[in-house]
Structures are given as structure tokens and as C-alpha cells.
């Protein structure tokens, strides 16, 4: 298993745990009257689960298992998959911080960090598709 795939899968597992902790916190909120930012965890929970866990796991396994690109570059362009990993994780972590913080402090600063998070995750998606697309071929 390539090193970057191991990084994708171990990160995905950590996000899986984080997603369920966020879900647990959301479920406790009506019972314990937790701080106000907890209400903003709902989209964070869903994206930890679907982007951090599901999509990241798929990306790591697809990079490992999909048909070879060429003999010289069997898994495509290494820099593209590293870009995918770094952009996706920096974007998602930024969202995890900025989205609840925006509820606590409604300054423009947190809004712009949320916009930056959007840009980073979008670029990650494009980088993954660019590397993956040529490897989808009939044998």
C-alpha cells in the first residue's frame, strides 16, 4: 500500500471518530445546554463524515487500486495526489474551526476563512479528478 494511501486511510479513520464525537455532542446539546457554538456543529458533523471519512477513504483506495496510468507513472502524478491530500485536509480542518467560531464571533475574518476553506476543498476535488480520470480505462 503506498505511503500516501496509508495517510489517506488513517486520516479518514481519525475523521470517522471525530464525526461521531461531533454527533454525540449534538445529541447531548438539548440535555445539557452546551455552549452556543455547538449548534453550528451540525454541518461540521456531516462533512467530517462524508468528506473526512467516506470521500477521503475512497480517494486513498482509488489511488492505490485503480488501473495503472502508464509503466513510468503507474499511479499518475504524485504531486496531484499530494495536493489532493493537503488541500482537502487543510480545507476541512479550516471549516471545522471557522464554522463554529463564526457563530461565536460574527467578524468578517471567520467568514473569509470559511471562503478559503471552500476554495481549498474545491481545488482538492479537482486535483483528485485530474489524477484519477486517465486511470479509468478498459483493459
Amino acid at each position: 500500500m503506498p505511503f500516501i494511501t496509508r495517510l489517506f486511510i488513517k486520516s479518514a479513520l481519525l475523521y470517522f471518530v471525530a464525526a461521531l464525537i461531533a454527533a454525540l455532542t449534538l445529541a447531548l446539546n438539548p440535555l445539557l445546554a452546551l455552549p452556543g457554538f455547538v449548534t453550528a456543529l451540525s454541518p461540521v458533523y456531516f462533512h467530517l463524515l462524508m468528506v473526512g471519512w467516506v470521500t477521503q477513504l475512497i480517494m486513498g483506495v482509488a489511488y492505490w487500486m485503480f488501473p495503472k496510468f502508464t509503466r513510468e507513472k503507474p499511479r499518475g502524478y504524485t504531486w496531484l495526489i499530494w495536493a489532493t491530500f493537503l488541500l482537502l485536509n487543510s480545507g476541512l480542518l479550516l471549516r471545522v474551526v471557522a464554522e463554529p467560531m463564526r457563530v461565536l464571533q460574527s467578524t468578517a475574518w471567520w467568514g473569509w476563512l470559511l471562503a478559503l476553506s471552500a476554495l481549498l476543498q474545491w481545488l482538492a476535488g479537482l486535483a483528485f479528478v485530474a489524477n484519477c480520470w486517465p486511470r479509468i480505462k478498459e483493459r
Partner: peptide, 10 residues
């Protein structure tokens, strides 16, 4: 998704 999140922040 990026448009939605950007629109939420800015």
C-alpha cells in the same frame, strides 16, 4: 458545495 460554503462565509 464550495459555492454554498463561500456564500455562507462571504
Amino acid at each position: 458545495g464550495a459555492l454554498l460554503l463561500w456564500n455562507k462565509g462571504v
